[in-house]
């Protein structure tokens, strides 16, 4: 692997020389000496992959990084395969990976030996929120209508795009608990993706769907077959979702972030962490990033390494309490 990277660097050199002029002016204590492996722990096409490829592209186009960011896909096990590989690469400052709630949820459900504490947090970049949808001709006008109905008839099914115990389920169960229901009483039906769940909602096969707000934008608006009851954000979102009230507006004190960020190898040197923190903070200010971000429906949510680390710990606590209520905690 080592040699291969050296070779990659040769290819990246011309690009690096070009950007060297701007970056060297900032007199960093540490700077990468070869190109950086930026791992998406999934196949091309998913959320992690989009983040990795977009970040690599923006960094290159804006000439921010001194070295090339090489996007590498390591799919498998909902991320577990990549985490196991990266965990072996102790202290390597040239390896980063994209991350999101599964880094906490997958280990909690027992499917990965490594969790977020095994890696170095670098920065949180963006976030999305959960959204609860019902069919447009449904009788439920507000979240409370829906939760009242669920209380009365626990058999009503709520579809989501991922397995029980992962993001959509946790988000729904947490909201239900905040609304005074038993978290475990929600009849959560997992589909093979948010799109699949929404199709089933349109066909009237299920009562409601919980999915990512970004994923659902295309489904809402005038003449749509679906209606949004609430988003899990602390305040209203913009764009096509400005009419959708938050949970909190409806008296349900609950928020849920579908955040995405970057982490590095275990025990990455502090200077390297500082370098990447600054790099990503700078990237978020560029026009290229803002254009890409808006097109993809992302919301900036930057946190530096330390804040991100604390945030992750808090998330782990929150998730394990919900998983505990559900009886899904495996440790």
């Amino acid at each position: 692997m080592k040699t291969s990277l050296k070779r990659l660097t040769l290819l990246a050199l011309p690009a690096a020389l070009l950007v060297g002029a701007t970056a060297s002016a900032q007199a960093q204590e540490w700077a990468p000496t070869k190109s950086i492996e930026f791992v998406a722990p999934a196949n091309p096409g998913g959320g992690w992959d989009t983040l990795v490829r977009t970040v690599s592209r923006v960094l290159q186009e804006e000439g921010l990084a001194e070295r090339n960011f090489a996007a590498i896909n390591v799919p498998g096990g909902g991320g577990a395969v990549a985490w196991a590989q990266i965990a072996r690469d102790n202290g390597n400052p040239h390896k980063l990976f994209a991350t999101s709630p599964p880094i906490i949820l997958v280990p909690l459900s027992g499917a990965s030996r490594y969790d977020h504490t095994d890696f170095t947090p670098i920065a949180r970049l963006i976030t999305d929120y959960s959204i609860i949808l019902v069919s447009a001709d449904s009788e439920y006008e507000t979240l409370n209508d829906l939760f009242d109905a669920l209380k009365e008839n626990p058999n009503l099914s709520v579809g989501g795009g991922s397995a029980p115990g992962s993001m959509d389920h946790i988000s729904m169960a947490g909201a239900a608990a905040a609304a005074g229901l038993e978290a475990a009483s929600v009849n959560y039906v997992p589909f093979s993706g948010g799109g699949d769940a929404m199709t089933n909602l349109m066909g009237g096969h299920i009562e409601a769907v919980i999915t990512g707000a970004g994923e659902s934008v295309g489904q809402l608006g005038e003449g749509s077959q679906l209606r949004a009851l609430g988003v899990s954000a602390p305040e209203r979102l913009g764009g096509g979702l400005e009419d959708v009230p938050t949970y909190q507006e409806q008296g349900i004190d609950y928020t849920f972030d579908i955040w995405r960020g970057v982490m590095g190898t275990p025990d990455m040197p502090a200077e390297a962490v500082a370098y990447y923190e600054d790099l990503f903070a700078e990237m978020l200010e560029t026009d290229g990033w803002q254009r890409a971000r808006d097109q993809l429906g992302w919301i900036d949510a930057y946190q530096d390494s330390e804040a991100f680390g604390d945030f992750l710990d808090a998330q782990q606590e929150q998730f394990s309490s919900v998983l505990g209520d559900l009886g899904l905690l495996r440790q």
Binding site: T3, S4, R7, L8, L10, L11, A70, A71, I72, N73
Partner: peptide, 12 residues
């Protein structure tokens, strides 16, 4: 296609 393949001992 921008797919990463292992380069190994050769320089490319």
């Amino acid at each position: 296609m921008d797919v990463y393949l292992p380069t190994g001992v050769l320089p490319f």
